[in-house]
Structures are given as structure tokens and as C-alpha cells.
Amino acid sequence: MDENTLQELKDTARRIRALTIDQIGYFGVGHIGGALSIVEALTILYYRHMNIDPQNPAKRDRDQFILSKGHAGPALYSVLADKGYFPQEWLHTLNVGGTRLPSHADMVRTPGIDMTAGSLGQGLSAGIGKALGHRIDGIDSKIYVIIGDGESNEGQVWEAAMSASHYKLNNLIAFTDYNKMQIDGYTQDIMDLDDLNAKWVGFGWNVLRVDGHSFPALNRAICKAKEEKCRPTMIIMDTIKGKGAYFAEGNLGNHNMPFDYDTAKEAIARLEKGAE
């Protein structure tokens, strides 16, 4: 990855992070932690890898993305608004009655959302369905799914893990946002995932482990996943929950936290200062 591309991605990620903090701060409360930990992953997918067209969101042969940890919706809404799927002004309607941007990703309400999610554990199964459907139709596309580490407590994730490798879905590329925190505390204390790599390897997946905030590392992993011939890929991303927001980063209470708009503005100012 050349310097210019890297700088462009970093600038985009900063913009997405700012829009996400602004969006949630404007409403006053939201899932800031898990939204900010996936910004680099969303950025590299939507601005570098995915075959999509915001003017034609239903394009049949497009790559698709499922935010299985649907509560990180605001980060995805920032990307979709930035890409032009809907007006950026919508971001200030987050969670307001009648909005098209609900707290959890919703394909019925929001242009550009490929799958409804929010009841944890369900997105990977839906991704398998999409991958199987595209295989039947001979559509050469990738299905991307991000699941959470806390979400990986759900049994359905492992039912899905088993079936994706059984069906040899090399068109399925999943990510675990391994920020090491869940609502009640550190994952290690609440429900220890232990050797997460070994679990996915054991289920027959191509497993890659990366720094989830490093664009070169993410890029290498995704390129490698795209070349995989007969297995689904799990890219386990080591991330920091609340990354980039001074009041939230690494704070155990950041899963769904209140903060006012002035705090949001201060956080955005610091983000931009950090970029200088």
C-alpha cells in the first residue's frame, strides 16, 4: 500500500470517526465503543475493496456487508452517508422517532444496509445464506460480515461457523472485532474466549490475525482472504473499544454511554488536532 493511499484511508477514517462521534453526541447517548473500534475495517472495505454503487444500492452482483454486531450501526451510517447512499443530514436523526437510522442496522429502513441485525449471533448465518445464494447464481462477489467478541458467546455463531466451512464458502469473509470488552466487563472476566484463533481454525476456517486499526495489515489480510480457494476466512482484529474518542477509548463503560454534544465537539477537535 503506497503512502498516498494510506494517507487517504487515514483521512477517511478520521472523517468517519468524527461523523460517528458527532452523530451519537448529537442524540446524547449511544453505542460509541463498538462503533469506533470498527472504523478502520469499515473504511478499508467500503473505500478500497467492496464492489458497490451508491447510486444503485441493489446492484445484483455487488459485494455485500453484514454488520452482525448491529449496535455499531452509527459507524456504518457515517460511511453510507459519506458515500452518498443518503443525505448526511440524516445522521442527526439517529434514534429519533420515525428515523430511518435506528440504533441497530436495519435493511428495511436504511438505504445501503444489506442485512438487518441487532439480536446478536444472527449475521453470520445470514452471510452464509447470501454466499450460498450467490454461488447458485454464479455471482462472483464477496460477502463480508463483522461480528463482535461478546457476540461470539452466542451458540448460533458456532453453528454458522461449522456450516460455512462445511459448504466451503470461500466467498465469505468475516471479521471479529476483538476489542476485549463486552457490556458487563472484560471478555476475559465475563465469558473468556480463550484461544479464539484456535477455535476458528478448529472449525475449518482460514484464520488471520491483524491489528484492526492498521490499514496495511487489514489490506494484506483481505487480499489474502480473497485468494482463498475453498475455505471461509475469519480475520480476527485486535482493536480498542472506543478508539479515537478521548472520553471513551478503553473505558469499560463505553458500550452504550451518554455524552453531550460539547463533549462530542471536543473529541472531534482533538481528533483533528491529532491529525496535524
Binding site: S125, K130, L132, G133, I136, E159, A160, M162, S163
Partner: peptide, 24 residues
């Protein structure tokens, strides 16, 4: 066009939803 999902009904329902989302 036939998928045996094994003894995992919850996953079957989710995969069915995914198949439906791409027109099946």
C-alpha cells in the same frame, strides 16, 4: 438447491433469511 444444515435449526433459519435476501 438443497441444503442440509445439520442439527442446527437456528442457523438454518438465519441462512434461509440470507438466501431470501439475495432473491431465493
Amino acid at each position: 438447491r438443497f441444503f442440509d444444515m445439520g442439527v442446527a435449526e437456528a442457523n438454518m433459519a438465519g441462512v434461509a433469511a440470507g438466501l431470501s435476501s439475495v432473491g431465493k
